[in-house]
Design a protein around this nucleic acid. Structure first.
Lengths: 355, 355
DNA sequence: CTGAAAGCGCTTACAG
DNA sequence: CTGAAAGCGCTTACAG
């Protein structure tokens, strides 16, 4: 038994398929009586419109695609969560495709989604990804979240990675640190590069010499980087990691080596993933409202799909906010307050986060 | 300028639409010369087949839906990651819909996906969800992952929550604990209930009295529960939390209260999310290969979509494995090894996890 | 307010 | 090996 079609419903309700369509779409005038009969037939037949047929007639899919480089860690799940909420509210379905480390895989995913979605959100923090995405998408609207690539004239949302990094370094300097190391993100990643550039600039501006070790945005790489820093003769008294994941890894490496945070070394991350407020000491970081950014991205894409398509060519910049927590409290304390640094207790609050 | 259709391609290649279709689908015989001409035209026109039209002709969407109760925390992102990998390998798209706390929202999501997907994976750990899902899905194959509900004759994957809980309690008893508390998951959640039941049974079997506080599977709720336990006159010497999130929250609550883990209190979670191996002390837990389970679920659903549909009525049971880490090392140590409990260092390894 | 009919873009027997 | 044509299930002017 095949699923019921609009014709079956029409027949059972003794009306034309046009009327069934009108009732179901709330478009066009219908008598209340007709309405009721149609609805009853729909119910009886368990009728669900064929989305493909509908999309063929309307040239709309009511679906948007999200192309992600990865799906590890809390950053992306938070982002998807925000998008999902907005998508549901706007009547869109969310098609996700992740694990596209390189531009090739990302473009394959993009191709496979074309024609299946009304719009795309592309997170691809690699050089050239922006052009690629816009090229491949054809007429499909694309919202770029490619972290710093030139997005000239294309709708996009980028984080002010450079400014955030500068703020991190300045905060560390202000709290009395001098030997500030940076754990960098993966080479070729534009977000990582912008954060590195911000670090280098702020250090140069302060006349401090730099110390950079490489990482890959994972906790494990942060831990390794931390171990390398611990072993150095000129051990840093502060570490700014290019994301929270690595900062947490480095935090553990230092603590495992018997060093105290923030007494011996201060630690600052980037992103403010839920975990950041949870580790001890809680991690100072550059806060991005990740889920909010996801929601915003989806809402903007949907606007892009509509008639306003061509008017939106803006590159929206999200400015991360420095959130100072226990991991970078000034040491020696600049305030008269004693004991802050020696206490192992941080604010026990989880800030209401619901991870 | 509208996107090119198969007709445009046919015209440009000077063949019929049927031939274009054959080339594109690799079905039916075509001359190499025809093939080349068609491919060239496709390339020149940037042609992408309309998925709706194709789905209308073939009655296939090449998409599967995933209905989740939530998208917080690492459990679900790991699960989706596993599904995504499998989906891509099998040529399917993944439509996700989350935040369906109650059965109503889940069924709304399910309705909206019908006709848009070839199959559904439903995670809905609520009573009645199984029947609901199967009822609403109509002819769409459904793979249930509803954690313990009766799944009689319906394809499903469930975790052995009861067995895992028993193993957790027995481990704690074996390592010398007596006053073992349980932090329960949300009421009405079948996974949570099965874990609670396992705890109660194992405690009864050992002749120990029980101590249960409520939680909601979030870190924050685990922390609150931990604070409540710390404050009790009959403070427990061990805590088994219904998931890792809550165990981590409780761990922090105990540590913030100045208690030592595992010396003063042992801690055991459930799931083995990446974070479990990362907190200090590392968390003993019941390990589920989350991404692997996701991959498996998707592969099985795709098999369900095929001709083998009706032969699969199995309820596959996943048995979690007890992984003993620092948070529940026997104390006082049963081995002669000294210092284990007093050392703050846990295994520094991140176990290669890439969060 | 309602219905007959064209058309959306594809696939697939069926002839040739 | 190739093409003409029917058909998939919907929506939407267009008449009435």
């Amino acid at each position: 038994m095949k699923p019921a079609t609009i014709r079956d419903v029409a027949q059972r309700a003794d009306v034309s398929v046009a009327s069934v369509s009108r009732v179901l779409n709330g478009a066009g005038p219908v008598t209340e009586a007709t309405r009721q009969r149609v609805l009853a037939a729909v119910e009886a037949l368990q009728y669900v419109p064929h989305s493909g047929a509908r999309s063929l007639s309307t040239s709309k899919t009511n679906a948007v695609g999200v192309i992600l480089p990865d799906l590890y860690g809390e950053f992306f799940s938070e982002l998807i969560r925000g998008m999902d909420v907005a998508a549901r509210a706007l009547g869109y379905h969310l098609i996700v495709s992740s694990s596209h480390d390189d531009a090739d895989e990302a473009s394959a995913a993009l191709r496979s989604m074309r024609g299946r979605v009304d719009g795309l959100i592309v997170l691809s923090p690699h050089l050239g990804a922006a052009n690629l995405a816009s090229g491949l998408a054809g007429r499909t609207p694309v919202l770029l979240m490619n972290g710093g690539a030139a997005t000239d004239g294309r709708p996009s949302i980028v984080v002010d990675n450079h400014g955030g990094a500068v703020a991190a370094v300045e905060h560390l300097i202000a709290s009395g640190r001098q030997r500030i190391a940076h754990i960098a993100g993966p080479a070729g990643n534009l977000e990582a590069e912008a954060r590195l550039a911000g670090y280098l600039e702020a250090m140069a501006a302060a006349g401090l010499s730099t110390m950079v070790v490489d990482g890959t945005f994972t906790k494990a790489s942060g831990q390794e980087a931390g171990e390398a820093l611990v072993a150095r003769a000129d051990r840093p008294d502060a570490v700014f990691a290019a994301n929270d994941n690595m900062a947490v890894g480095a935090l553990l490496a230092f603590q495992d080596a018997g060093l105290r945070v923030p007494e011996d070394v201060a630690m600052v991350g980037f992103d403010d993933i839920p975990l950041a407020g949870l580790v001890r000491p809680a991690l100072t970081t550059l806060k991005i409202n990740i889920a909010g950014m996801g929601r915003n991205a989806l809402e903007r894409l949907v606007r892009l799909i509509g008639p306003a398509a061509d008017t939106d060519t803006a590159c929206e910049v999200v400015h991360p906010e420095l959130v100072v927590r226990g991991s970078s409290i000034a040491f020696p304390p600049t305030t008269g307050a004693a004991g802050v640094a020696s206490s192992n207790k941080q604010t026990p609050s989880l800030e209401g986060e619901k991870l």
